Lab assay of single mutants.
Amino acid sequence: MTTFKLIINGKTLKGEITIEAVDAAEKEKIFKQYANDNGIDGEWTYDDATKTFTVTE
């Protein structure tokens, strides 16, 4: 398992979430669903070196 981080830079929601997953593709799906469930629609980036997804509205 690898630890992945999501950084949220939303208009109404900001924060960080850290979760373990098998791979980045699995985690991306979970993070995007979390963002969608919380009304966050923005630009996504991924840094493989730090295993960090960022979504910015």
Rank of each mutant, 00 (worst) to 15 (best):
residue 41 D to N: 12
residue 38 N to T: 06
residue 27 K to C: 15
residue 10 G to C: 15
residue 4 F to Y: 14
residue 54 T to I: 07
residue 53 F to T: 11
residue 24 A to E: 11
residue 15 G to M: 15
residue 31 F to V: 13
residue 31 F to W: 08
residue 11 K to S: 07
residue 23 D to E: 06
residue 23 D to C: 12
residue 11 K to W: 11
residue 35 A to D: 00
residue 16 E to F: 14
residue 47 D to A: 01
residue 15 G to Y: 15
residue 35 A to V: 08
residue 56 T to Q: 03
residue 8 I to W: 09
residue 14 K to F: 13
residue 6 L to A: 02
residue 28 E to G: 06
residue 40 I to D: 02
residue 13 L to F: 14
residue 56 T to G: 05
residue 41 D to Q: 12
residue 37 D to T: 10
residue 15 G to K: 13
residue 37 D to R: 07
residue 27 K to Y: 15
residue 14 K to T: 10
residue 26 E to K: 04
residue 48 D to I: 07
residue 50 T to D: 03
residue 36 N to H: 14
residue 48 D to V: 05
residue 13 L to K: 06
residue 5 K to E: 07
residue 11 K to G: 06
residue 13 L to M: 12
residue 53 F to P: 01
residue 3 T to P: 03
residue 52 T to K: 01
residue 41 D to R: 11
residue 10 G to T: 14
residue 20 E to V: 13
residue 7 I to K: 04
residue 45 T to F: 08
residue 2 T to I: 14
residue 47 D to V: 03
residue 5 K to C: 13
residue 49 A to P: 03
residue 52 T to W: 02
residue 45 T to I: 06
residue 4 F to V: 13
residue 4 F to A: 06
residue 27 K to Q: 15
residue 38 N to W: 15
residue 9 N to R: 08
residue 3 T to F: 13
residue 3 T to H: 08
residue 4 F to G: 08
residue 18 T to K: 06
residue 22 V to C: 11
residue 44 W to F: 05
residue 34 Y to D: 00
residue 53 F to I: 04
residue 49 A to L: 11
residue 33 Q to D: 06
residue 4 F to Q: 06
residue 37 D to M: 10
residue 16 E to G: 08
residue 37 D to I: 08
residue 40 I to Y: 06
residue 14 K to G: 04
residue 8 I to N: 00
residue 43 E to T: 10
residue 28 E to S: 06
residue 57 E to R: 10
residue 28 E to P: 02
residue 46 Y to I: 00
residue 24 A to N: 14
residue 43 E to N: 07
residue 4 F to N: 06
residue 5 K to I: 13
residue 6 L to P: 03
residue 36 N to A: 14
residue 11 K to A: 07
residue 21 A to K: 03
residue 21 A to W: 13
residue 11 K to V: 12
residue 29 K to D: 09
residue 40 I to A: 02
residue 19 I to N: 01
residue 54 T to Q: 03
residue 17 I to W: 13
residue 33 Q to G: 04
residue 9 N to I: 14
residue 38 N to A: 09
residue 50 T to F: 02
residue 38 N to S: 08
residue 57 E to A: 10
residue 19 I to E: 02
residue 21 A to G: 14
residue 7 I to V: 09
